[in-house]
Write a protein that binds this DNA or RNA. Structure first.
Lengths: 191, 191
DNA sequence: TTATAGTTTCAATATCTGGTGAAAGGACTT
DNA sequence: AAGTCCTTTCACCAGATATTGAAACTATAA
């Protein structure tokens, strides 16, 4: 009897664990899409994160049903982002990949990259726009015209916003090594 | 002589203003893409924001070189988000649109919407995953297996992250009416 | 060296997303 | 009611993006 039920229970556990992981993976993939990252990259990352185990290309291909090419390219992209790492198992020839375990660190890495790629150029553009509308450039009479004043006001509003946001990011990025960053601790204490 | 140069100066100002605005519009459109919003929506919003003036569908179409259908749909979507508003000019038949002027308020609206659409479902999924791996569900022996423990640990890490982030968002959303929100003031004071 | 195991690249293809324009729909005027 | 002005919808098309699979490449072993 025991010999009959034991394996059944074991299979059921494997299934349960796998179902739970798959659920997470699917959601994470969907969510990735609404960020800049595509579904496959999101899923691969979710898989590595949630299992907590180093997996090789074939493991990933098999578990997510994707082609070798796709797996290879996506894994490389994730490595470039810095949120997963290559690793070797001694005595094994093939490469394994594992996710960072600390969510705060991952987020910090992503935040740094997005700041650099997205916020910095916008701030630069705003400054450029402002320079084009300075008194010195277009003359005093022109600078006083209502439309110009309005546009300058709007540019200022946006600049302030981006500057402050940038500063917060900076703080976050600088601090978020393992566990809650200082920024977060400050916030949690404040409320 | 004066009659000759005066118009020239005027034209040059118009051009300068327009060039400056276009620069901003283009950048904002590009940036929109890397967020969930598409280029056209980004550009329309940028146009309404930067000019600070209510514009009608035809104004938008002409300035951005887009079709009527596209303009109509994008304007509607922006209204749905709540970052631009419809308005009527007395005595005019057609509808005008204008952007919110306060960047902080806009950001707050967007943050609220994204939290609802993106973070809440993920948190919900994580909880569901956790429920599937509770001792009560899979039995004590199973719950102690290493893989299960690992996955549970990862789920916890992610849950903590999302919960804290959610809380910060919530604070931000609740406070950010006109000007810097309390969250931001707290942060700026702390550093 | 050749054989083998594993990885990367890339042209071809499939899929998704955005944009258009014309037709239909509303609403105000005469 | 018919006419005018304006807005919305939607089937279709075009361009962008993601994915595949097979060939090329690299590194190690025999």
């Amino acid at each position: 009897m025991a010999t009959l039920t034991a394996p059944v229970v074991k299979v059921s556990l494997e299934q349960q664990l796998r179902t739970s992981q798959d659920l997470f993976i699917r959601r994470w993939g969907e969510m990735g899409q609404t960020w800049g990252i595509n579904r496959t990259m999101g899923e691969i990352h979710a898989l590595l994160y949630i299992t907590g185990q180093p997996l090789c290309t074939d493991d990933v291909m098999e578990r997510l049903n994707i082609s070798r090419g796709n797996a290879s390219m996506s894994l490389r992209a994730l490595c470039d982002w810095g949120i997963i790492r290559r690793m070797h198992k001694r005595g094994e020839r093939r490469e394994y990949f594992e996710s960072l375990g600390d969510v705060w660190e991952m987020f910090s890495i992503i935040a740094a990259e997005r700041k650099r790629r997205e916020m910095d150029p916008v701030l630069e553009t705003i400054k450029q726009c402002q320079r084009m509308l300075e008194e010195g450039t277009i003359g005093k009479a022109a600078a006083n015209r209502e439309e110009v004043q309005l546009t300058r006001k709007r540019l200022e509003g946006m600049e302030e916003f981006m500057a402050v946001t940038n500063k917060i990011f900076q703080q976050f990025i600088g601090n978020a090594r393992s566990g809650l960053s200082r920024v977060v601790r400050v916030l949690l204490k404040a409320f």
